[in-house]
Simulated scan of single mutants.
Amino acid sequence: MIDDVLGPSLDVLFCGINPGLMSEATGHHFARPGNRFWPALHLSGFTPRLLAPAEQHLLPSYGLGITNIVPRASAKASELTREELVEGGAALASKVTEAGPKVLAVLGVSAYRTAFLRPKARIGPQGETVGGARIWVLPNPSGLNAHWTLATIAGEMGRLRASLA
């Protein structure tokens, strides 16, 4: 389990599926070198430069935070049970209510579908809220998600960023 990155007045709370083993070992979100979260965050314009995972503490200064649906670390998200995802979704709603971000950005459509019981959800803005925050589903930035490139993940993050203006 790794600590959430939260702060006051968040524009976006990014929500991973669960920490990977490298993230658990370092205490930093999206720590595996092949993960595309940090590069996509920068390319989309959310950060003025590429941040390293060890700089995650800077995110609240940009109005950003990070949490996970499930706190348990695993080598692959596919190791999580349906029950863990559903329980995590319920816990996430409480966390979002407390943190108060404008948008909850869930990084992984399959995990979102399971955790929030929305089997037909697609990438992009959702027609509902969680804990008072709009929901936007983004592609999973894991290097294991070969269907999405760095450019297309950054493009989706850029769409989210543009919606905040």
Rank of each mutant, 00 (worst) to 15 (best):
N18S: 11
W136N: 05
G100D: 08
T149M: 12
F30N: 04
R49E: 13
R72W: 11
P101E: 07
V109T: 07
T152I: 13
P19K: 09
G131T: 09
R122T: 04
G63C: 05
V5D: 03
G63P: 07
T114S: 08
P19A: 00
V130A: 08
A90G: 01
T67G: 00
T149K: 11
V103H: 01
L85S: 05
L107V: 05
A165G: 15
A151I: 14
G143L: 13
V103N: 01
P48G: 08
T26M: 05
Q56H: 10
T81R: 15
L21Y: 05
G158V: 12
A40F: 12
G88N: 07
V109S: 02
G132Q: 03
R118V: 08
L50P: 08
R82T: 15
V137H: 12
G27I: 08
L58T: 06
L59H: 06
Y62F: 10
A162K: 13
Y112L: 04
G108Q: 05
M22N: 12
K120P: 02
I135D: 05
A93D: 06
V96L: 07
G132D: 02
S163M: 09
N145M: 07
G65N: 04
L160W: 10
S9Q: 12
K76L: 15
S23I: 09
G132L: 02
G20S: 13
D3S: 13
A90W: 02
R36Y: 13
N140I: 02
G88Q: 07
V137L: 12
P19V: 01
A40W: 11
T26Y: 09
M22F: 15
R134E: 01
A40R: 07
Q126D: 04
R72N: 13
K120F: 14
G100F: 10
L104V: 08
Y112E: 06
R72P: 00
A52K: 15
A90E: 11
M22A: 15
L164F: 14
E128P: 03
P141V: 13
L13G: 00
